[in-house]
Design a protein around this nucleic acid. Structure first.
Length: 694
DNA sequence: ATACTGAGCGCG
DNA sequence: AAAGCGCGCTCAGTAT
């Protein structure tokens, strides 16, 4: 097996073990224990624990490695419900869900070794087996390699949805057998994880005990290692004058990430209610639209379109119509570069070849692209993701984004279409119960505010203190225009669009004001992403020389901003890390790379990390404060449900909406125990759906 | 059959 | 030669 670790004996206990009481007492005395569950699958809504394992270090220094039957849960009830206890997991939220599904929710602190590991080794995988192999030199086989494969076809309902289909025999009749219980899913289950588990417990119980105990033991060993490494990992604030509280990543982890795990668990657990009827109502129309578009494409092409995204596109536009590609793809593993047929190319074709078939085809493809993805991602797959009360429980991943942001998956609720592109009003499908309101709160210009705070640029700070629109303010300061004129220009533009003012109201001066605002907006945006003159010129629709000129003008007005970005890159060159306000760090070794494009990318990341990362922890702190404001939860019935980077979604009973909104505003605008020097502003709305609350 | 990758595109 | 940050999902194509 290649084990490079001293393994304590695996112990096994169940409800009938004579010594179970002794174990309970011993666990009760521990300050922290590692815990893991063996379940019948990976779905956080439907699956349950059947075995669980514990690991800790006894007073005599002996490591313990236990597997327990789920029937022993009740003996530990008082420990599970102890709010002060420390529980150590790998992938904490998953096991916390299993424990609650098994009717024994864990109330104590959720300490996630994956999250610890992500702070130290952001580029490495954070799974238990990977971490154990790399850091402990310890390998043990996967569950399925040990006990038999869980064959494809088993419904995981959080995994590969493509597999969720009824199994059909050669005559087209559904095959008798077990099907997933999930609503409208009905995929065929060949060998459930539960059956594999049952087989293992019958045929090879000792192996099962050994296997399960390893998971908790590995977690425990890694926990100690990561604790030590976090404590030895120096860090500091991006802004030490205002944030002197952090010396090591250990501080950062326990102050911020540990409480945050609990918040995310609550969000996942709460989920978001989906208006199934609404989706079912619009689905047939969308399918009809897609089929019609496909039919028209086939007519133009001359034969039926089997795969809309297939290679026929290249053949058609490039070979048949003779249009020169505007861009080639990267080539990938094979190195074969192909013409890029993306939205940009299609838009170009649609506009440049008006009246020709190629233009019509491009228009059809653009139209199809706009709806197909939305349909498959959010409409087709949604029924199989809903629980018995029509709630979808997305995952909110704490250990993925290098900057400290969250990511969302299964489904990804952070890229649900919005604005103009939300043509089916998908956001209206995310709703709350009758008698409740959806409370949608988002930060206004968070990253620009944090840039002003971090750079301490007086001009920019002044704009926020005056409560000006940041882009209008920047335009006024950078291009020496009166703020009121820019505000007026913006208003005139709006009126003309509505038809309330004639075109002639758009005087050259109005245009100048609007262009000034658009330019500083692009520059501010571009700065954050480390854009160079060329990309900015493209965005601002001007020559590179003009772009350089405008950037220089901007920087001349805001020298502290230039200094901030220069120093951000310089700091990474000096010490290898970029920092956030609260002391999260990101390693960027490529900052010294010889190849320009690798080094430049690291420089862009170095510029972006302090701002994006600090924005992430601003929202993170607000969420922690809101969650830990127990009145909000218990007295006013607020339930947090989702975060979309600078937006926090939740629900509450209608009677408390106003008070909840004000309380949330307070926390969002004052997320830190210290004043960062720039006011933060939150826009808060409420309605009966996500879409309505904007 | 199943797994992986690149391209493309949605969001902040 | 490569020049816009951070994510996740779907599809098509290819590798195993």
């Amino acid at each position: 097996m290649g084990w490079n670790i001293q393994l304590p004996d695996a112990e096994y206990y169940d409800l009938y073990s004579a010594t179970l009481d002794g174990i309970v007492r011993e666990v009760q005395d521990q300050k922290a224990v590692a815990i893991d569950t063996e379940t019948d699958g990976l779905n956080i809504v439907e699956c349950n624990p059947y075995y669980w394992s514990l690991s800790w270090t006894s007073e005599n220094g002996r490591d313990r490695r236990l597997t327990l039957n789920a029937n022993a849960f009740p003996a530990f009830k008082h420990i599970f419900s102890d709010y002060e206890r420390n529980w150590v997991f790998v992938n904490a939220k998953f096991d916390a869900h299993m424990m609650e599904n098994g009717k024994h929710p864990i109330k104590g602190k959720l300490i996630d070794v994956s999250v610890m590991h992500a702070l130290l080794y952001e580029e490495e995988p954070h799974g238990l087996k990977d971490m154990a192999r790399v850091h402990l030199g310890w390998k043990w086989t996967d569950f399925s390699d040990t006990f038999g494969k869980i064959r494809k076809g088993y419904c995981m309902c959080g995994g590969t949805y493509a597999a969720h289909k009824p199994k059909i025999d050669s005559k087209g009749n559904p095959i008798e057998g077990k099907y997933c219980k999930s609503t409208d899913c009905h995929c065929y289950m060949e060998a459930t994880a539960l059956e594999v588990l049952r087989r293992a417990e019958k045929d090879n119980h000792n192996l099962l005990v050994d296997y399960a105990a390893n998971d908790a033991y590995g977690t425990w060993k890694l926990f100690h290692l990561m604790n030590k490494e976090l404590a030895e990992a120096p860090t500091s604030s991006l802004y030490p004058d205002r944030w002197p509280y952090i010396n090591t990543l250990y501080d950062y982890f326990y102050k911020t990430e540990v409480p945050f795990t609990r918040v995310l668990y609550a969000c996942e657990r709460n989920g978001i209610k989906v208006d199934k009827g609404y989706l079912q109502g619009i689905a047939p129309n969308i399918v009809k639209d897609m089929l019609e578009l496909r039919k028209q494409m086939g007519e133009l092409y001359g034969k039926p379109i089997i795969k809309v995204g297939g290679q026929w596109q290249t053949e058609y536009f490039i070979n048949k119509c003779g249009i020169r590609p505007t861009k080639m793809t990267k080539g990938g593993a094979s190195g074969i570069k192909k013409p890029s047929i993306d939205a940009k190319f299609l838009t170009y074709v649609a506009e440049s070849f008006r009246g020709e078939d190629s233009s019509k085809m491009a228009t059809l493809l653009l139209e199809h692209g706009a709806i197909a993805k939305q349909y498959s991602t959010y409409i087709q797959s949604m029924p199989g993701r809903l629980d018995g009360k029509d709630y979808v429980h997305m995952k909110l991943n704490q250990d993925v984004a290098r900057t400290g942001r969250l990511s969302s998956s299964d489904p990804n609720m952070q890229n649900v279409t919005t604005g103009e592109k939300d043509r089916f009003h998908l956001r209206n499908a995310f709703i709350c119960e009758k008698g409740e309101d959806m409370v949608v709160a988002d930060y206004s210009q968070l990253e620009m505010r944090l840039l002003a705070a971090a750079s301490q640029e007086p001009g920019m700070m002044e704009i926020f203190h005056r409560n000006w629109d940041i882009h209008m303010g920047n335009a006024a300061f950078v291009f020496n225009l009166p703020y009121d004129d820019i505000a007026a220009a913006k208003d005139i533009e709006k009126q003309v669009k509505k038809g309330k003012l004639p075109e002639s109201a758009m005087t050259p001066y109005v245009w100048q004001c609007l262009k000034a605002r658009a330019d500083v907006k692009n520059i501010g945006f571009g700065l954050n992403y480390g854009m160079k003159e060329r990309a900015l010129a493209a965005r601002m629709d001007c020559s590179v020389e003009e772009a350089v000129d405008k950037i220089n003008q901007y920087m001349a007005r805001y020298p502290a901003v230039r200094a901030f970005f220069d120093e951000a890159v310089e700091e990474v060159r000096d010490c290898g890390y970029a920092f956030t306000l609260m002391g999260r760090r990101r390693s960027l070794p490529d900052i010294l790379a010889h190849k320009d494009y690798i080094r430049f990318r690291a420089e862009r990341q170095a510029s972006n990390m302090p701002i994006q990362g600090t924005a992430a922890e601003t929202c993170k702190m607000a969420m922690i404060n809101i969650y830990e404001d127990t009145e909000l939860r218990t007295k006013y019935g607020y339930k947090m449900r989702l975060q979309v980077h600078d937006e926090i979604l939740g629900t509450c009973p209608k009677e408390y909406t106003d008070i909840v909104k004000e309380r949330i505003r307070e926390w969002m605008e004052h997320p830190f125990p210290t004043d960062i020097g720039v006011p933060l502003l939150a826009d808060i709305g409420s309605a009966s759906s996500w879409g309505g609350a904007k």
